[in-house]
């Protein structure tokens, strides 16, 4: 695609956007450019100025990125507090002058969000605990034990990471149905209790353990359980925490599998509950948005609490501690 053509496309795309959003994008673009220019220019200035300019430039960029990420969340909260007809008003309303808190009550009671959230937490909790246990056990075996076909088996574990979920979907469904787990908590959780990714992640953390520590523990008379609990796991804690959090978010956000493997409303999770809520409240966008906020709130709280662990898990091993 030629550059001219590309610019034309961008212009056309911008033209089709709502004026308010277009202005926002243009403004954001200007701030990004300004920030970048500041960062580049700052390399030539005196050290003090350089540091200040770089700081300002960096913060400008961060502010824009933060706005881009947070704006949809903000709009969700705002829209949940508006009247139904205000939600679709043009230009969009960016601040609720008369917040309508009743939408939350409606979403909670009419959408049965309490039950759905409980289901989500039960299912997610079982999956997280199960995945952690199986990952740690498998990782321990792959990292510390010697047994026939160890490498081959590990490659097989890794290979499962390359297979998209959709490929195994029908097979899993068949298995679950034939085991009589259709429309049960078993069906919702058991297929996700072990993952190649989890075993891989924890194994890498275990392998980072110095060989001397293993030898020392062996001489100090630690058995497998003592070594795992007192030496290996504490060292691998960032990776295990990160796995737990990832596992939580992916389990909580599941939609297709819980939808297909359950038929009973009692068993359905909050992601499906939201879809039902949307279907039943076709024109009450504020209620749908309120439900969304309620469903996302637990995740948001968890994110704030575990943010440090999450980042540490992602960067673990990048810098020697």
């Amino acid at each position: 695609m030629s550059a001219e053509h590309g610019t034309g496309t961008v212009a056309t795309a911008l033209g089709t956007l709502a004026p308010g959003f277009r202005d926002f994008l243009v403004g954001a673009g200007i701030v990004v450019v300004a920030g970048t220019v500041l960062l580049v220019l700052s390399r030539r200035a005196s050290p003090t100025h350089r540091r200040q300019a770089a700081l300002v430039g960096r913060y400008l960029l961060l502010v824009v990125l933060a706005v881009i990420v947070l704006f949809p969340l903000y709009i969700t909260v705002v829209d949940s507090l508006l009247q139904p007809d205000q939600v679709v008003a043009k230009p969009p309303i960016l601040f609720p002058t008369h917040p309508q808190w009743s939408s939350y009550a409606t979403a909670w009671t009419q959408g049965h969000l309490g039950r759905y959230l409980l289901n989500s937490f039960v299912v997610t909790g079982v999956i997280v605990v199960g995945e952690l246990v199986t990952s740690i056990a498998a990782a321990y075996a792959f990292a510390f034990l010697r047994f026939p076909f160890r490498k081959t088996l590990f490659v097989v574990f890794l290979a499962t990471m390359m297979v998209p979920v959709e490929v195994t979907f029908l097979t899993n469904l068949n298995t679950v149905v034939s085991l009589g787990w259709y429309n049960t908590y078993f069906g919702l959780t058991i297929p996700f209790l072990a993952t190649g990714f989890g075993a891989f992640l924890v194994r890498q953390a275990f392998l980072g353990l110095p060989g001397d520590l293993r030898d020392a523990a062996e001489l100090d008379g630690a058995n497998h359980w003592q070594f795992l609990r007192e030496v290996a796991l504490p060292v691998a804690r960032p990776a295990v925490a990160a796995l737990g959090i990832f596992s939580f978010f992916s389990a909580f956000g599941q939609y297709l599998w819980p939808l297909i493997v359950t038929k009973d409303d009692r068993l359905r999770t909050v992601t499906i509950g939201l879809k039902f809520l949307a279907n039943s409240q076709l024109n009450n966008f504020n209620v749908i948005f309120a439900g969304t906020v309620l469903a996302a709130l637990p995740l948001f709280i968890l994110l704030v609490v575990f943010e440090k662990q999450l980042v540490r898990g992602l960067t673990a091993g990048a810098v020697k501690g």
Partner: peptide, 20 residues
């Protein structure tokens, strides 16, 4: 087994358990 041999070892790296 090493633990049954009744010997103790001091390593060059000390091999102290970092979390303890």
């Amino acid at each position: 087994e090493p633990k049954e041999r009744d010997v103790a070892m001091v390593f060059q790296s000390y091999a102290l358990y970092p979390q303890m």
